[in-house]
């Protein structure tokens, strides 16, 4: 082929509906293909180049800024209904590079790379002096708070024993001195009231995930932990999201209260708030 042919990219407005459509599919892709952390939402499209692709179609090369929402990735709530983590809560942003193929009117993510980073402590304290900053997840106070909270969760469960999946965020609250943690759990084949050795428990074949928020006060008598958990209905894993999964209509269609699971007693679906 003569040199220079087919090497020109198409210029497109970052706020063009076609660019936004590709960006939303890309953000949907990372939310559907992450097993840890929180769902992210589109904040800003930084750059877009549209390259011709042989034999047909076009490839959207995108640079996107995202923001962390308060929904865990295992939470089936559509991301359009997930609140963005606010600055005073110590917001987290994502910087993403994507390549999205558009062919026959359908979008397909070819490449995705994201890096997330929390807002600076200076910025958080500027908008909210005295607010709790994100703490390292391996901090001993964080580990202790999660352990205490998990004990509370299982003490309140009339069904499965819940195993810790991951600690997703933690904050050391100055006043009153306490530790706030958020973590994901999964139901096991052990009964919470009967478990003797949690290490021998196995995750259920039909995975049952939950997400908990807890405040742990070490100074209080008896180590008080206040915990609220929500257990999600099992969600099928998608190998590749459909091009229209990001549309508001689809979001509304699935934005309904999570029905109780068939294999867990209703009382175990929402635990808390419990205080020990």
């Amino acid at each position: 082929a003569p040199p220079g042919l087919g090497l020109a990219y198409r210029e497109l407005n970052c706020d063009d509906p076609e660019t936004e459509q590709a960006a939303l599919v890309a953000v949907d892709y990372i939310n559907n293909h992450s097993s840890r952390g929180y769902k992210h939402t589109l904040n800003q499209i930084d750059k877009v180049k549209v390259w011709p692709r042989r034999p047909m179609g076009e490839v959207f090369e995108l640079e996107i800024d995202t923001l962390e929402t308060t929904c865990h990735v295992l939470d089936p709530t559509p991301v359009v209904n997930c609140p963005v983590r606010q600055l005073k809560e110590h917001a987290v942003e994502g910087d993403c590079d994507f390549r999205v193929l558009k062919q026959d009117g359908q979008f397909l993510v070819l490449f995705a790379k994201c890096h997330s980073s929390p807002d600076s402590a200076e910025d958080v304290l500027k908008v909210c002096p005295g607010c709790a900053l994100l703490a390292p997840l391996n901090d001993t106070r964080v580990v202790r708070a999660v352990e205490a909270a998990l004990t509370v969760v299982n003490a309140g469960s009339n069904g499965s024993y819940f195993q810790l999946l991951e600690v997703t965020r933690a904050q050391l609250v100055p006043l009153p001195p306490s530790t706030y943690v958020e973590f994901a759990v999964a139901a096991t084949d052990c009964i919470a009231k009967e478990v003797t050795d949690p290490a021998k428990c196995n995750l259920l074949a039909e995975k049952q995930y939950g997400f908990c928020k807890a405040t742990f006060n070490e100074k209080a008598v008896g180590d008080a932990a206040e915990v609220t958990c929500t257990v999600f209905q099992t969600q099928p894993m998608l190998l590749q999201p459909q091009p229209d999964t990001n549309t508001p209509t689809t979001g509304v269609a699935t934005a309904m209260p999570i029905p109780p699971s068939a294999n867990l007693p209703a009382a175990a679906m929402v635990v808390g708030p419990l205080v020990v």
Partner: peptide
């Protein structure tokens, strides 16, 4: 190939430069 000067510039649609709008807030 003969090209009329100024033709390309005159016919090129105006594209607003990126980045696009901020939907929430900027960190």
């Amino acid at each position: 190939t003969a090209v009329e000067p100024g033709m390309a510039a005159a016919t090129r649609p105006l594209v607003r430069p990126c980045p696009g709008r901020i939907r929430h807030f900027k960190i």
